[in-house]
Simulated assay, not measured.
Amino acid sequence: MELNSIKDAFDRVTKKQKLSSSKSQEIIEQIGQEIEQALSRIQSGKDSASPSDHKLIERTKAKLKEIAPLSQLEGTQKDLNIALSKYPKLLDKSFNPDISKAYRNIDFDIHTVNQIIASHFYRQGQFDLGDCFVDECHEPEAAERKAPFLEMFQILEAMKSRNLEPALNWATNNHEQLSQNGSDIELKLHRLQFVEILQNKGRDEALSMLAFFGSICCQTYG
């Protein structure tokens, strides 16, 4: 692969782009100066328009055409477009777009790959597909990854039905690990349960629940 030719082509494109940009900027500045001078002459004259003002405007228009003829702007832009159109063609010739050419025949740890695929299915809640994959590839150990994800989806389904008991049981069973991670999800779940009971079963039932969990929450979260 000849990288020097690619670099040279890129340099030509950037050079044309800079030339086109600087030329356009130069013309814009000249046009601005001519317009400002014309406005200054008009403002320094009479308050009302006069035939001389129209002559001044016509002279300014003619001057602008001399400064920036359309052909001059088109020329620099055309050179830039030609350079830009050639560069992608050179890239296509220099680099093989066939990704299979980059393939290397290396050994994969099939066991690890199967574990990753099975975990992906379980993480997405596709348990039947995950079980089928585990059976087909004869990876019984991968099935061990199913349990925590299955429990998670069961908790989520219960919460959709406004049943917080599975989530509270999970938080209680994992209390130590949650505390080590600085998580207050257990307290938040109890708060949600309190609000749910207050809305559906009334104030007395909610206060009873609060009294039951109050001492535990105070000891745990201060």
Rank of each mutant, 00 (worst) to 15 (best):
Q126V: 00
L90C: 01
G32S: 05
K16F: 01
L19C: 02
M209W: 15
G32F: 09
E151N: 13
I42G: 01
T60L: 11
D109W: 02
I28P: 00
E205F: 07
A49H: 01
I67G: 10
D135V: 04
E151C: 06
L189I: 08
K63L: 11
E2M: 04
Y122G: 09
I6K: 02
G75D: 13
E151W: 00
D135T: 11
L192H: 05
L156V: 06
Y221E: 06
N174H: 15
K78D: 10
L70S: 07
N96P: 02
E74R: 11
S100M: 10
E176L: 08
F153S: 07
M209S: 08
L19F: 11
K78Y: 12
D128P: 02
T172C: 01
K201A: 15
R191I: 14
E144C: 04
I31M: 11
F127R: 02
I27A: 14
P88D: 12
F153Y: 14
I67N: 08
K7E: 10
D135L: 12
T14H: 03
Q25E: 15
F213Q: 12
G222Q: 15
A49Q: 04
Y103P: 02
Q199T: 06
K101L: 06
Q193T: 03
S179R: 10
A68T: 03
K188C: 04
C137L: 09
M159P: 00
N81C: 00
M159F: 02
Q43C: 06
K61D: 03
S21D: 15
S48I: 02
G75Y: 11
L189E: 10
F149G: 03
T172A: 14
E165G: 01
M209A: 04
K86D: 12
V195K: 14
P140S: 09
G75M: 09
R162H: 06
I116T: 05
Y103N: 13
R123S: 14
D204K: 15
F10L: 14
S52W: 03
I110C: 01
S208A: 07
Q25P: 00
R41K: 14
I6S: 05
A211D: 13
Q154E: 14
N181W: 07
T14P: 00
L178G: 04
T76H: 10
E36D: 12
T60Y: 04
I42A: 07
P69R: 08
E141I: 08
Q33N: 13
T14A: 05
K18E: 12
M1K: 07
P166E: 06
A206S: 13
V13D: 03
M159E: 14
S44H: 11
R104F: 08
G32A: 05
T220I: 05
K55N: 13
Q72Y: 09
P148C: 08
K89G: 00
R104G: 01
S208K: 12
K18H: 12
Q25F: 07
L207Y: 12
Q177G: 06
S22W: 04
E176Y: 05
D109M: 01
Q177S: 14
L64Y: 11
